[in-house]
Nucleic acid binder design. Structure first.
Length: 664
RNA sequence: GCGCCUGUAGCUCAGCAGGAUAGAGCAGCGCUUUCCUAAAGCGCAGGUCGCAGGUUCGAAUCCUGCCAGGCGUACCA
C-alpha cells in the first residue's frame, strides 16, 4: 500500500469528471511540507481554474462535493470547505482509524505493506567494474555501494534484476602482470601467496612503465611551465587603461598564476617520482635493464589478445587469484553479483560487432580509425583503433547486444562516475542507431570522492587510497568509538554493549558508516570524505541509524517481550497521541520513499526517509512510555509501533546493504 | 572554443514530483536526567537559495544570459 497512490487514484476519478484531461493533475496531489496543512495536499484547483477559467476556490468546492461521494472518506477525515486554504489548496488529513488499520496490516506483512511492482520489469545493474589486475581503490567505492543499493531496492520492489560486474580482465594491466611474471617473479612468494606476489609484480611493472612515461613527459611539463611563465610576463607588461579591460586582464593574470602553480606542482611530483626510482639502486638497475618495458608490456597484451598459448595459459592461471582478491573485499562489503562478465568474455564478439556496424553503414574509416559518427556529436566514437585494436566503446556495444539477446532487459543502469558522461552519451546514441531502441539506457553517474582539501581523495604522499586500507581505517576508528562506549559509566542495561565482541561490532559499524556516508550523499555531487563525520553519533549517519535500531530492540529485551507471541494475538494499534500518529504515518510512507528512490536512482532519498523515521521514533520514545504505558492495551499498541519501526529500519538499511546490530 | 555538472546558514550537505513561513548535522548560545540506551532530546541565533532577466496564480526548483568552480572534449578505461 502506498498512501500517495491511494489518494491519487481517488482524485483521478473526480478530476476526470470535472475537466477533460483533468486526471493529469493527480501529480499535484502531494505530501504536505508542513503538518499544519494536513498530511497530504491537493494543489489541483489552481491549474484547473486556469484551464476552466473559473475561480480556483470554486473548483476546490466542486471537487470536495464530488470527493465526499467516493471512498476517499474511508481514508481521510471528512472533507469540508474548511479543508480549502489559500488560493485553493485542499488539505487532506488521514483518519487515525485508517492509519491504525494500515499499520496492523503492515505488521502482519513480511513486506511491511509495500506492494510488489506491477508490472515487474527487467533491470541490469552494471556496477563496481574494477580492474582486477590491480587492487581496488577509493574510486571504486561509490559505484560498488550505490550500484548494490539500487540492485537491492529494485529487487525488493519485485523487479527481475541482474547485477553484472563488468570487470576489466583483459587490458594492459594483464600485460603488466604477464611481463612482471616472466621477468621479476619470486617463485617462492608466488607459491606461498600468489595474490600478494601478483599485486607486487603489477605495482613494480607499473612503476617502471610510469618512470619511463614520466621521463618523456618531463620536458613537456617544463615547456608548459615555461610557456605559462612567459604568458604571465607578457600579460603583466601590458595593463590596459580602460577599467573593464583592466579587470579582465587582472583575471587572466590570476588564471595564468594558477596555471603556473599547477604546472610547477606537476613537474615537482614528476621529478620526485623519477628521483625516488633513481635513488633506489635495485629499481634503478631494473629501469636500465628494461628500457623498452612500456612497449614490451603492450606486446604481451597484444599476444594475449591474439591467442598466444603461453600468455593465455598465464592469464587463466592468474584470473582466479585476481578474482579472489576482489572477492575478499566484496565479502567484507556484503556485495554480490549475479554475473561477472568482464571484457574478456566479449573478446570474440568484438570483430563481429564492428563488422556489423560497418555493414550497416554506421561506422566508417577516418584517419585510419573506424568511427561511428552521430548527429549532434562533435567527436566520433571510435570502435577500432588505427592499429586494429578494439576499445571499451566496442566492448560496451557488444555488451549491449549480448544483454539484449540473453535477458531482453527493459533497462540497463550503468553506475559509473560522471567523467564518463560523454562516453555514455555516445554509446547510447550509437546503440540506438544500431537498433536497440526498446531498452532504457541510463548512466547513473556520480561525483568524485574528495579529501578535506577539496581535491580528489589521495594519501599524503599523493597516491590513490586503497579500498582495503579505507575499510581498515573506518573499522579501526569504529573500534575506538565502540570502546569509548564500553568505558561509559552506566552499567550495561538490557541491550547495551556488555558481553559482545567489540571487533565484530566495530567491523559492522565501520563498514556501515563508510557505505551510508556515500549513499546519504546526493550521488550527482562530489563529496568530502570524513571519517569523523561518517562515524558521528548524531545526524544522518549509519552509526545513528544503527543506534536507533538497537534502542528499539532494547525495549523488547528490557521488557522481556516475546515479539512472536505478541503478534500472534492479532494486536490492536492506536495512534491517538500526536507522537504515535507521526511515527505511524512515517512508517507507512516507506513505500513512497522507495518509489522516490527508484524514480531517479537516488539512494539518498531512502537515507533521508530512514533518518526522518529515526527522528520520529525519538520523539515518540521521549513522549510515550512504552513498557510503562498507562494501560495494557496501549502498551501492546506501542510495542507494535516499536516493532514496526525496528523492522522498517532494518529493512531499509538492508536495502542499502547495511547490517544492523541488536546491541551497541 | 564547445559540452556536461556544481554554486543553498560560518562548515559539510539535504530539498530541485514548481506549492503556503527554505531544512539537517556540525560549530555557537541556552535548557532538560527521581524517566524504557544522555551514544539522547528541546529551544535560540544564524539565509539577497551565485547574479540578472523570463515563464507561472505561485520559482531554490523550469527557461535564457552572465559570474565562479569542477570535469570532459578522436584512437586509455
Amino acid at each position: 500500500m502506498n498512501i500517495l497512490d491511494e489518494l491519487r487514484q481517488r482524485f483521478a476519478v473526480v478530476l476526470k469528471e470535472v475537466a477533460p484531461g483533468g486526471e493529469k493533475y493527480v501529480e499535484l496531489v502531494l505530501p504536505s511540507q508542513d503538518a499544519r496543512f494536513g498530511d497530504y495536499q491537493a494543489n489541483v484547483a489552481m491549474p484547473l481554474g486556469k484551464q476552466l477559467g473559473r475561480p480556483p476556490r470554486e473548483i476546490a468546492i466542486e471537487l470536495i462535493a464530488r470527493l465526499v461521494q467516493t471512498d476517499l472518506q474511508t481514508i481521510c477525515e471528512p472533507l469540508t470547505e474548511q479543508a480549502i486554504a489559500g488560493p485553493g489548496f485542499i488539505n487532506l488529513k488521514l483518519r487515525n482509524a485508517w492509519l491504525a488499520e494500515q499499520l496492523q496490516h503492515a505488521l502482519s506483512d513480511p513486506r511491511l505493506g509495500v506492494a510488489p511492482a506491477s508490472p515487474a520489469k527487467t533491470y541490469i545493474v552494471d556496477y563496481s567494474a574494477p580492474n582486477v589486475a590491480k587492487p581496488m581503490h577509493v574510486g571504486h567505492i561509490r559505484s560498488t555501494v550505490i550500484g548494490n543499493a539500487l540492485y537491492r531496492i529494485l529487487k525488493f520492489l519485485g523487479h527481475r534484476v541482474i547485477g553484472d560486474n563488468h570487470i576489466g580482465d583483459w587490458g594492459t594491466q594483464f600485460g603488466m602482470i604477464i611481463y612482471g611474471f616472466k621477468h621479476f617473479r619470486d617463485e617462492a612468494a608466488y607459491v606461498r601467496q600468489p595474490v600478494a606476489e601478483l599485486a607486487r609484480l603489477y605495482r613494480l611493472v607499473s612503476r617502471l612503465v610510469d618512470y619511463r612515461a614520466t621521463q618523456t613527459e618531463s620536458p613537456k611539463l617544463e615547456a608548459r611551465l615555461h610557456a605559462a611563465r612567459q604568458a604571465a610576463e607578457t600579460a603583466r607588461a601590458q595593463t590596459p587603461a580602460e577599467p573593464a579591460a583592466a579587470k579582465k586582464a587582472a583575471k587572466e593574470q590570476q588564471r595564468l598564476e594558477t596555471r603556473i602553480k599547477e604546472a610547477q606542482g606537476e613537474l615537482d611530483s614528476a621529478r620526485a617520482k623519477i628521483a625516488a626510482v633513481d635513488q633506489d639502486p635495485a629499481l634503478a638497475n631494473l629501469v636500465s635493464a628494461h628500457p623498452e618495458i612500456a612497449a614490451e608490456v603492450l606486446a604481451e597484451t597484444a599476444r594475449l589478445h591474439a591467442g598466444d598459448a603461453e600468455n593465455l595459459r598465464l592469464w587463466r592461471e592468474f584470473m582466479p587469484y585476481c578474482l579472489e582478491d576482489i572477492e575478499r573485499i566484496y565479502r567484507r562489503l556484503g556485495v554480490e553479483f549475479d554475473e561477472t562478465l568482464g571484457e574478456s568474455f566479449y573478446h570474440d564478439r568484438l570483430a563481429p560487432t564492428v563488422n556489423d556496424l560497418q555493414a550497416r553503414g554506421l561506422a566508417r574509416e577516418s584517419e585510419g580509425a573506424l568511427c561511428v559518427f552521430l548527429p549532434g556529436q562533435s567527436t566520433p566514437m571510435i570502435v577500432r583503433k588505427q592499429d586494429g585494436a578494439f576499445l571499451y566503446a566496442t566492448t560496451d556495444l557488444a555488451t549491449i547486444a549480448y544483454r539484449k539477446e540473453r535477458w531482453n532487459p527493459d533497462a540497463i543502469l550503468y553506475v559509473v562516475d560522471h567523467r564518463q558522461g560523454l562516453h555514455f552519451e555516445q554509446l547510447f546514441a550509437a546503440a540506438r542507431a544500431w537498433g536497440h531502441q526498446n531498452v532504457e539506457l541510463v548512466h547513473v553517474s556520480f561525483g568524485t570522492v574528495l579529501g578535506d582539501d577539496g581535491r580528489p581523495f589521495k594519501t599524503r604522499a599523493g597516491d590513490t587510497v586503497g579500498l582495503e586500507g579505507l575499510l581498515d581505517e573506518a573499522v579501526r576508528r569504529a573500534l575506538a568509538v565502540v570502546a569509548a562506549n564500553d568505558r561509559s559509566e552506566a552499567p550495561p542495561t538490557g541491550a547495551e554493549s556488555g558481553g559482545r565482541d567489540s571487533h565484530s561490532t566495530a567491523e559492522t559499524v565501520g563498514i556501515a558508516a563508510l557505505k551510508y556516508a556515500d549513499l546519504a550523499q546526493n550521488r550527482t555531487s562530489d563529496y568530502v570524505f570524513s571519517y569523523d563525520k561518517m562515524l558521528a553519533m548524531n545526524g544522518n549517519t549509519a552509526t545513528y541509524m544503527q543506534y536507533a535500531y538497537a534502542r528499539v530492540r532494547s525495549i523488547f529485551a528490557k521488557g522481556e517481550v516475546d515479539v512472536d507471541a505478541l503478534l500472534a494475538k492479532n494486536p490492536t494499534i492506536t495512534v491517538d497521541e500526536p507522537a504515535e500518529r507521526a511515527l505511524g504515518l512515517e512508517i507507512l510512507r516507506f513505500s513512497e520513499a522507495l518509489q522516490l528512490t527508484v524514480a531517479d536512482y537516488r539512494p539518498n532519498q531512502l537515507t533521508t526517509y530512514l533518518f526522518e523515521l529515526a527522528n520520529r521514533f525519538s520523539t515518540f520514545f521521549e513522549e510515550c512510555p512504552v513498557l510503562k504505558a498507562p494501560t495494557p492495551a496501549l502498551r501492546t499498541s506501542r510495542l507494535c509501533l516499536c516493532e514496526l519501526t525496528a523492522r522498517t529500519l532494518r529493512q531499509g538499511l538492508e536495502l542499502l546493504g547495511i547490517d544492523v546490530l541488536e546491541r551497541m
